[in-house]
Lab assay of single mutants.
Amino acid sequence: MQGVVKVNSALNMRSGPGSNYGVIGTLRNNDKVEIIKEVDGAYEIRFNGKVGYASKSYITIVN
């Protein structure tokens, strides 16, 4: 499943599905991501070869 990031500035990509996990990357508006699955209000995603988590509130599914 594919998604597009929709933010005003940037969205943190984290090592786990919550803000208490470390930041492993930054997503920008209109970045395209692969959605692997939904976990606790976040999506597990793949972006630029990395797998991490981002809030589903800022990712629009575009299948």
Rank of each mutant, 00 (worst) to 15 (best):
M1K: 11
M1V: 12
M1L: 13
Q2E: 11
Q2T: 13
G3D: 01
V4Y: 07
V4W: 06
V5C: 05
V5Y: 01
V5N: 02
K6H: 12
K6S: 10
K6L: 08
V7L: 04
V7P: 02
N8C: 15
N8S: 13
N8I: 12
N8P: 11
S9Y: 12
S9C: 15
L11I: 15
L11V: 15
L11M: 10
L11T: 10
N12F: 13
N12G: 10
N12R: 13
N12S: 12
N12M: 13
M13D: 02
R14Y: 15
R14W: 15
R14I: 05
R14T: 13
S15W: 06
G16Q: 05
P17H: 05
P17V: 07
P17D: 03
S19L: 14
S19W: 12
N20Q: 13
N20R: 11
Y21V: 04
G22N: 14
G22K: 14
G22V: 14
I24G: 01
G25Q: 10
G25T: 10
T26N: 06
T26A: 07
L27G: 00
L27W: 01
L27H: 00
R28T: 08
R28L: 11
R28M: 12
R28P: 01
R28G: 06
N29V: 05
N30S: 06
N30T: 04
N30H: 09
D31W: 05
D31I: 03
K32W: 12
K32A: 09
K32L: 14
V33M: 02
V33T: 00
V33S: 01
V33L: 04
E34V: 11
E34D: 11
E34S: 08
I35R: 00
I35G: 00
I35Y: 02
I36R: 04
I36T: 05
E38T: 06
E38L: 07
E38F: 05
V39I: 12
D40T: 07
D40M: 10
D40N: 13
D40W: 09
G41A: 07
G41S: 09
G41T: 07
A42Q: 15
A42C: 15
A42I: 11
Y43K: 00
Y43L: 04
I45A: 00
I45K: 00
I45L: 07
R46G: 04
R46C: 13
R46N: 09
R46W: 11
R46D: 04
F47T: 03
N48I: 04
N48G: 10
N48F: 07
G49K: 04
G49C: 07
K50N: 08
K50E: 09
K50R: 10
K50G: 05
V51K: 08
V51C: 09
G52H: 02
G52S: 02
Y53M: 02
Y53A: 01
Y53I: 02
A54R: 01
A54T: 08
S55D: 15
S55N: 13
K56N: 05
K56P: 05
Y58C: 14
Y58M: 08
Y58L: 07
Y58H: 12
I59M: 02
I59G: 00
I59T: 00
T60L: 13
T60C: 15
T60D: 11
I61C: 08
I61K: 06
I61L: 11
V62E: 10
V62W: 08
V62Q: 09
V62Y: 09
V62K: 06
N63K: 12
